[in-house]
Structure formats: C-alpha cells, structure tokens
Design a binder for these strands. Structure first.
Lengths: 349, 349
DNA sequence: CCTGACGAGTCAATCGATTGACCATCATCT
DNA sequence: AGATGATGGTCAATCGATTGACTCGTCAGG
C-alpha cells in the first residue's frame, strides 16, 4: 500500500500550470473555466480541452494558494468545552454538515485542558486560517472576544449568551423546560423540583425561568428551595438530587436541566431506594440514544442541537461581522416519554 | 463589542512588510529573526528593534502564506466515525493535545453521515490542507488509502488494522480483555461469556482472542456458543445479552467488548430481572465517567485512549510517509472495580 | 478602405512569507 | 597595499491560484 509510494516520497501535486500546459492554454483560462467566470469568452472546443485536462490529471486547486489570494479560508472554527460532552457532539455534527453543505471545512477545538489550550487555539487559528469562529458553551474568557474583534475575526456565541455580546444563537431553553413541566403537571404532579444548571450558565437561567413560568401558569408555587443549583455533570446532578430527596416535603417530580445531570439523579434514586417513576418522576432536557438504556429509561425533551450547530454556521457565514445576531432556534422540541415519569402516587388519575 | 469593529470591517492584518518598515529593515530580516535562522548575523540592537516592532504591532505570520511556501500545513486531519461516540472523544482529546504540543492544528471530521461525507473530507482535505491524516475506526473504504497514497498524503490507521495496510497504532486489546477475564476468574467464575464486537472490527477480534487465551490459560473452555457477535452500541449489546441469558446453561459472568454495548447489557439485565452482580457479573472494555453512574456502577478496564490519540499524532508527524508503522500502545491498562462483578452465587469464597 | 466591436484568450501583478544568493563595509593579515 | 574574511544585512525568486487589464485577429458597417 504505502510502499507503492516508494522513493517518490514527496510527489508534487498537480498545479494549474500543469493543466494549462496540457490543454495548451494559459493558466488563467483554466482558472476561469473552473470558476465559471462570466467575463471569459471561450470556444466550446477549448473549454472541453481544459476540462479534459483537469479530469485526466485529477487536478484540484491548492486550497492554501487560493485562500491566500482570495482572503477567504473557506474554513470555520468551532470551540467547545470538551469532546466528551455529548451535547456538544450533536452541535458539532450539525455544524459539520452545514460547513460541508457550503463546501467549507470545520475545525473543532476544545478548551478542556484549560486556558492555555484556549489561548493556543485563539493564537494558532489567528487571522488567515479561519473565516470565523463559533464559541460554544461557557469557556471563553470575555477578553477573547475583544481579541477576536481586534483581529477582525467574526465570531458567534452558540448555546450561550453574554450581556455585552450581541451575537448569539441559542435554543428555546425556556420552552424546553416548560414542555417538561407541563408534561409533569399533566400527569398530576404539583411539587415539581428543579435541578438547575450552573448559576453562570445562560442556558441554566433560561431553563429555570421556563420551569418557573410553567409552574406559575398552572397556579403552582416555586419556592426558592424547590430549585437546586448544580452543574451539567452526573456528579452535580447526583449531589443536587440527594439534597432534594432528603427534604421534608420531598418533591414528586424533578425537572433536571441537563441529561448528564439526570444520569446522576437516577443513580442517587437507585442508591437511596427511591423508585422511579413510582415515587419520583424524572425528566431531563436534551435527548440522547443512551437515555433509552438507562434504568429506568429516561424521559427527556428532545432539543434540536444539530439544527443549532447548522444554524450557527449559516449565520456566521452569511452575516456581516459587525451585525448583531440574536437568534433562538425554535421548533423541533418534543417530549420523549420513556417511562421515568408517571402520575404521582395516589393521584386521582 | 463587535460594534467596535464598526465600518472598518475588513481590517487588514499586520504583515511582515509592516513590521520590517517599522523596524527599518528588510522583510527577510524579520522573518529570519523570528525563525532564529543561524545564517543571519545581526547586531543586538537591530534584533531588539525588530522584536519591538513585532510586539508593538502584535504581528503574527499568516499561516496560509507560510504553508504555501514551506509546503507544510502544520495541520493534521483526523477522521472518526461519529462525534457521539465517547471512545473517539478520548482519542480526539489525546490527538489534540499532541498536536498542540507540536504547534500544529488538528482538523477532525466525522463520516457519520455516510460515504458522501467521507468523500467530501478526502476531497476538501486534499493536498495542501493537511500534512497527514489519521483514520480512526472502521469506516474508511479501502480505496481511500490508495487515493491518499496517490496524492502523497501520509496516513495512519488508529485503533484499527487492515491486512494490507502496514501503518497502524492500536491498543493492547488482547491484554485488556485478558485482564477482565482474569478478574472474573479470580472471583471464581468459570462460565464466562463474551459479548464481542462486530466481526469485521479488528479490535473485536483481538479482544475475542484475549478472552479465549485467558480462559484457556485457566483451563476453562470457550465453546463457540459462549461468544456472541454484536456491535459497539447499546442496542447491539442488549440483543447479544438477551441471547446469552436465554440459554440453558446461562453464564455467570460476561465480558462485554465495549462499554457502550455494556450499557445495553445492563439494561437487558434490568428488564429480565437478572440481578447484577448477584446472578451475573459484567465487565466491559473502556472506561468512562458515566460508568460510575450506571445501576449498578459498571466495572471496566480502563484503556489509554488518549495516549493512543497522542501517539498517533506523534507517529504520523515523525515517521516517513512510506515507512511501516505497527505499534501497540501498551501499559496503563487497569481494572476499575465498581461493583458490577462479584463471586458467582454459591462460590466457595 | 477604415473604424469599431466583439470573440478568444494572454499578461502580469498580487496575496504574505521564506530562503538561497549576493553585496557593502570594515578590520585584519601578510 | 592588496587580499581575506567577518559582520550585517539586502535582493529577488518562489509557492499556486486569482483577476483586472490588455492584445490579437476577424468581421460588419459606413
């Protein structure tokens, strides 16, 4: 296989000049034929010769040279907190699909290993390599945005907002939470607690608001004690759930702000011998294939994470770098009932 | 924020010429100072002026121009099956860290959406954009390798081997499986079944061999019926487990070839009312944080997936494109006992 | 017969950094 | 004095594609 490469190790790529020579025309003709330049007039026969040469030599333009000249890298960057987080996996997939659809490349980096890694990305990705940068999740120091502005690199916050940054695209977190709460209310629950996300996460705030709004709309109270701040990890979810379950008036249902945290919730229930959904109903925001295989299978609200990623690329690619972008990706919210929710014990139903 | 960019939308980047002008020297001097060219002799004072100009203008070299000239993109590609698969997430993380350590960029793409997506990546990533390509997992059509060879792009298979491709780096799958089996044997198990990976997956074959070898070394038999082919998904693991559990002489322990499949195994046990580890011990290859939060918490063999990713980049970067690479990343295997394994019912222990 | 217009391509500058070859001073050695 | 050799840089070609300006020939119209 690779031995077929043998000594001719650094085989040089086919260039525009090779094609032009073979077709007996100038390089510019080849370039213009390939880009369908309307200002080029050319005989059909010549065009055919050019295209034949392109095909025979299996030519493809050097992306670097083109980008240098055109000042467009045809590449977008995507920064995420951590590849291990399946929520971001879905966003990546959407973004990747959208990038491919535009004949662009997506470069995804994580900042998991700390600010040094983030700095490296901002540095290396610096001017020239990407046409724009998606910043997904809570990780970019505010300073980075100014840095990007200074360098003239368009950016867009994804699944996250910042007060002073008017370029973001998010999910309808409020409605997602509301949907879950209304499902629980529909089953007859009244004491519905909320395992919330981190206090500084914008998604967490919006889901919390969705929970509260839906509760109030049904005439139910939302005491401060009914919501416990946590983070989007099983550990966090477990701790918050433990706290809720050891209270006097234990809730009959919990809305968990994130599916990863909900895994912790289920684990704690198992540990404490609290039967789900018998004694406690659990529903989480975000759906994963995994949810069907938990014990019990987890009821979730499916969110259009891939669409979010797609939309992010589209917006970044099609909007002027200094124009505000404030978009909520709506629709596609759906409650996936898998059995971790049921009417409360002793419900009239 | 972005409004600070205002009308000066396309702010042009600082170039070598800008720096040179400011320092009162030729562009080549700046370039040589920055690259520590030993053939340049320069007065300390001049060097200081150059460095000052670089700092004041916050210059950074345009990566595209440099790559065009040097014929090195300082970028590596990584193709994976699917971003949603946490096993590959770990590989990505390792590869990313290694790339950063070499001051390179990693471009990760998935082929989840089918061969069209793979083709796009191979096409777009084409000559010039990457210095080499890591192919992780079972997805690349064999033809792609010849295509890459033809284009002179070095590649390396990761966590996978192919008969005719002598460039790969894999884990010590055989030992990982063996470790798990010996743990079960140590607990007193004798009927240890194996939920194997897909027949065409090289990792699956090696884990199967590890299972068989360890069993035989202990004088235990490995009838064909004790191994059920599956795939690396919860669905697959569930189906295979169901088959094993409905047999006459049900095993007392199962080695599952992959943690995702093991999630399916636990789900089926729950469904059929088979108590784990009371009636059945379960251990899986690959460790994830998630494992601690399953019910019961899952015993696993931790594998150095990140190291695999790191090593892959190192090998790709440092080995001639036509030299064979056949490396097994060893060490770091460790059994993580979390409670899904126990002595068999009625064991002497 | 001359002008103009069009058809069919060609020329050459440009993007920004790198790098081999070269040059101008000045001091040193014989 | 003239050759030798550092020292301290400069010049310009090059990577490969793009694109505005330009040229050459031919044909129609006046």
């Amino acid at each position: 296989m690779s031995s077929s490469t043998k000594a001719s190790d650094a085989k040089k790529a086919v260039t525009l000049l090779d094609v032009a020579t073979r077709a007996g025309v100038d390089r510019s003709v080849v370039s213009r034929v390939l880009s369908d330049d309307p200002r080029l007039s050319i005989r059909d026969e010549t065009r055919a010769r050019v295209l034949a040469a392109v095909r025979e030599l299996d030519y493809r333009p050097n992306a670097l040279a083109r980008s240098l000249r055109t000042r467009r890298a045809d590449t977008y960057g995507l920064l995420i907190p951590d590849f291990g987080n399946p929520v971001y996996a879905s966003i990546i997939q959407g973004a990747e699909a959208a990038a491919i659809a535009r004949d662009c490349v997506l470069m995804t980096g994580s900042v998991g290993a700390g600010p040094a890694q983030a700095a490296h990305h901002l540095d290396v990705i610096g001017r020239g390599r990407v046409d724009g940068l998606l910043l997904a999740g809570d990780h970019t120091a505010g300073a980075s945005l100014e840095e990007l502005d200074r360098r003239g690199i368009p950016w867009l916050l994804v699944n996250r907002r910042l007060p002073r940054a008017r370029r973001w695209v998010v999910l309808d977190d409020e409605e997602a939470a509301g949907l879950a709460v209304r499902h629980l209310i529909g089953l007859g629950h009244e004491r519905i607690a909320h395992v919330a996300g981190p206090r500084d996460a914008d998604t967490a705030r919006r889901r919390m608001r969705g929970w509260r709004t839906a509760m109030r709309a049904a005439g139910l109270s939302t005491p401060a004690s009914a919501a416990v701040v946590s983070d989007y990890t099983p550990e966090g979810g477990a701790a918050a759930t433990r706290e809720l379950l050891t209270r006097r008036d234990r809730p009959t249902a919990i809305l968990v702000a994130n599916i990863a945290a909900a895994i912790g919730t289920l684990a704690v229930c198992g540990e404490l011998g609290v039967s789900v959904p018998g004694e406690l109903s659990v529903v989480a925001v975000h759906d994963l294939a995994l949810a069907a295989f938990l014990r019990p299978a987890l009821t979730t609200v499916r969110t259009p994470l891939e669409k979010l990623g797609e939309r992010a690329i589209e917006l970044l690619a099609s909007t002027a770098p200094d124009a505000p972008i404030e978009e909520v990706v709506t629709g596609s919210l759906e409650l996936v009932d898998r059995g971790s929710t049921a009417p409360p014990r002793g419900a009239a139903a």
